[in-house]
Simulated assay, not measured.
Amino acid sequence: MDVFDYIKLLSSDYTLRTITLGTAVLGAVTGMLGSFAVLRKQSLLGDAISHAALPGIALAFLLTGSKDTNVLLIGALISGLIGTFWIRGIITKTHLKSDTALGLILSLFFGFGMLLLTFIQKQPNANQAGLDKYLFGQAATLVESDVWLMTIVTALCLGVLLLFWKEFKILLFDKEYAQTLGFNTKFIDILITSFIVLAIVMGLQTVGVVLMSAMLLAPAAAARQWTNSLGLMVFLSAIIGAFAGVFGTAISSTQNNLSTGPVIVLVASVFVLFSFIFSPSRGILFRQLRLLRNRNDLELQKTLAFMHNIVQDHEDISHPHVVKILNNFQGYSRKGLQKLVDKNYVTVQGDMWSLTPEGFTAANNLYNQNLKDD
Rank of each mutant, 00 (worst) to 15 (best):
V3T: 11
V3H: 03
K8H: 15
L10A: 10
S12L: 10
L16C: 11
T30W: 07
G31E: 02
L33I: 04
G34H: 03
A37R: 04
V38T: 05
K41C: 08
S43G: 15
L45M: 13
G46E: 01
A48L: 01
A48T: 04
S50Y: 06
S50R: 03
A53H: 07
P55L: 05
L59F: 11
G65L: 05
D68A: 14
T84A: 10
R88W: 08
R88G: 12
G89Q: 08
I90V: 08
I91K: 04
I91A: 09
T92M: 12
T92H: 15
K97W: 10
D99K: 02
D99T: 01
L108V: 15
F109Q: 01
F110M: 03
G111S: 05
M114D: 10
L115D: 14
Q121L: 14
A140Y: 12
L142Q: 04
M150G: 14
V153A: 09
T154F: 14
T154N: 13
A155P: 03
F168Y: 13
F168C: 13
L171K: 03
K175R: 14
K175H: 10
E176I: 06
A178N: 06
A178F: 06
T180P: 07
N184H: 07
N184W: 06
K186R: 13
K186F: 11
D189C: 06
I190K: 05
T193Y: 08
S194Y: 05
I196L: 12
L198C: 15
A199H: 03
I200R: 00
T206K: 00
V207A: 09
V210Y: 03
M212G: 01
M215S: 01
L216D: 00
L217K: 00
A223T: 02
R224Y: 13
L230H: 03
F235T: 04
F235K: 01
L236E: 00
A238C: 07
I239L: 13
A242P: 05
T249A: 14
A250F: 09
A250V: 07
I251R: 04
S252P: 11
T254H: 15
Q255R: 11
V265F: 02
I277Q: 14
S279T: 11
S281G: 13
F286V: 06
R287I: 08
Q288G: 14
L289N: 04
R295L: 04
L300A: 12
K302C: 15
K302D: 13
K302N: 12
L304G: 03
L304A: 02
H314V: 11
E315T: 10
E315L: 13
H321M: 08
V322E: 15
V323F: 06
K324A: 13
K324G: 13
I325K: 11
L326M: 12
Q330E: 15
G331R: 12
Y332F: 10
K335D: 14
G336C: 09
L337D: 02
L340G: 07
D342W: 03
N344P: 05
N344K: 15
V346W: 00
Q349L: 14
G350V: 06
W353S: 05
T356S: 03
P357M: 05
P357Y: 06
E358M: 12
E358R: 13
F360G: 09
A362Y: 03
Q369R: 15
N370C: 11
